[in-house]
Each structure stands twice: as C-alpha cells, then as structure tokens.
C-alpha cells in the first residue's frame, strides 16, 4: 500500500445554517496526482482551504504526514504551510506587486532569499508556464485572465513545494494552453515527486493529469478510484457528471420546481 500524504477523516464544515462539508473522508497518496471532480458549490474549494487552515473545520481530523493539523498554531503552522503551494481559483495575485515579485514572493518573504536570485527563479518558472521575461515587470491588472492564471500557477510551484493544490488550473485557458498546463502539472509531480491535489470540471484535463479521481457530492466523497476505472465506476452520479448529462440522479437546484 502506498504511503498517505493527506488523510481527511469525517471533515465537516457549515456556514451558518448551510452545511458545506458533511463528513468528508479522502485519502491522498504521496507522490501521486489526485483529482477531485464535482458540481459547482459542492465544497471543493472549502475542502482545500480546510487543509490549509484558512478555514477551520467544525469537526473531523486532517492528517498530513500523519500529524493532525487542524489545531496547529504559530511557528508549527508556518513550517507546515511551507510544504504547500496553492493555485487559487480566482488567482489571488498581489495586485500591488509586479508579476515577478508575485512569483518570487514565497522565496523572498518565506525563505529570505536574496531578491536578485529569487527574480531569476521567478523568470525561469514564468517560462515554464509560457510567459516571457517581458511579462515579469507588468502588474497583474495588466494581464489577461488566462495569463493571470498562469502567473498563479508559476507562483504555486515557485518554491518547489511537497504538496501542490490546483483549484481549477485550466478554467479560462484556451485548449492548447490548457494542455500545456496539464503537461506542466504532470511534470511537476514527476520531477519534484510532489503530491498534487487538483480540482477541475474539465474532464479531459482530469483524465490526463489524474492518477486517482474522487467525486464530491453534497459535502462527501461518493466515489474514489484510479483514473482507469472512471468509465466503469458503476456509480450513476459519476457517470452523469463525466458525460455532462442534465438528466440523472444529480439534479441542479435551479431545475427543482
């Protein structure tokens, strides 16, 4: 059995009267790429933020490398977070800093690297996501949505983290760039030996980057298996989702009478 990097056990989170995560359990093996699929608003981003401690779950355990991280504070928490890189769904680029400083941020602030050296690494990472050195000195507001996404991606991988979260990495990119990003994610996992957890609605991307796929529905993982099994999952919810059918067990709220 492969080693577990992240183990979520019965994690629950509600906002006011709205239950978002409802006893979610998911095991993520070390050094592999796991993709979580699921409808809009089912709590995928909330799940990532719980692991990062940005949102505190109401109940449940989150083990990373065997340590329960929900109650980490202070220096322990900083050390813990240094393992991670995260691509936010909305980019979350620092709009007061130029592109290269965004990418180099974790190196300069988090690891006290000299600015000149961090800048060189930033430019190298930008090249990996298909952005030239001329983009480095622009500000995020001067970039297109897809370019912002790629800068966010470069920032997430800049410090060579052990664990990388990609929240919808290919949304908003053209099909060719989306595939370049897919290859990049695969390479990051292979080259760095990193553990990747990605969220996507893009089934082509999911099939390409995933070793394992898990599907979230109503705040729980309802199916989890190797990518090769996705087409014969035997699960009606998964079938409906991967084929994008309006008819099926999953009914969108807006379709309810």
């Amino acid at each position: 059995m492969t080693k577990l990097k992240i183990d979520l056990k019965n994690v629950s989170k509600r906002f006011g009267s709205k239950t978002v995560l409802n006893g979610l359990s998911l095991s993520i093996p070390s050094g592999e790429s796991t993709v979580v699929i699921g409808g809009s608003g089912t709590g995928k981003s909330v799940m990532l933020k719980c692991i990062l401690g940005i949102i505190t779950p109401d109940a449940g355990e989150i083990l990373v490398d065997g340590v329960d991280v929900v109650k980490l504070r202070g220096g322990d928490r900083d050390a813990y977070l240094a393992k991670f890189g995260m691509l936010f769904q909305g980019g979350a680029l620092f709009d007061s800093l130029p592109v290269w400083e965004n990418v180099a941020f974790g190196l300069i602030q988090g690891r006290n690297m000299a600015r000149g050296k961090a800048r060189d690494i930033a430019i190298e990472k930008l090249a990996k996501v298909g952005l030239g050195a001329d983009v480095a000195k622009l500000y995020p507001a001067e970039l297109s949505g897809g370019m912002q996404k790629r800068v966010g991606l470069a920032r997430a991988i800049a410090a060579d983290p052990e664990i990388i979260f990609f929240d919808e990495p290919t949304t908003g990119l053209d099909p060719i760039m989306a595939d370049v990003i897919n290859d990049l994610i695969i390479a990051t996992v292979k080259d760095l030996g990193a553990t990747a957890l990605s969220i996507t609605h893009d089934m082509a991307s999911a099939r390409k980057i995933a070793d394992h796929i898990a599907m979230i529905y109503k705040g729980r993982i309802i199916w989890n298996g190797p990518v090769g099994r996705i087409d014969d999952s035997g699960n009606d919810y998964v079938d409906q989702f991967i084929h994008g059918r309006a008819e099926g067990p999953i009914t969108m709220d807006l379709l309810k009478p």
């Binding site: 940005i54 979350a92 620092f94 974790g106 920032r155």
Partner: peptide, 17 residues
C-alpha cells in the same frame, strides 16, 4: 480588497503571516 480577492489567504500559503 485583499481579503475578498483571497490575497490574504494567499499570503498564508506563501509562508507569510
């Protein structure tokens, strides 16, 4: 603005308090 665009969350993930 940094809060609602998740920039403050992003700081945390970049090992910056």
């Amino acid at each position: 603005t940094m809060r609602v665009t998740e920039q403050i969350d992003a700081l945390t993930t970049l090992s910056t308090n």
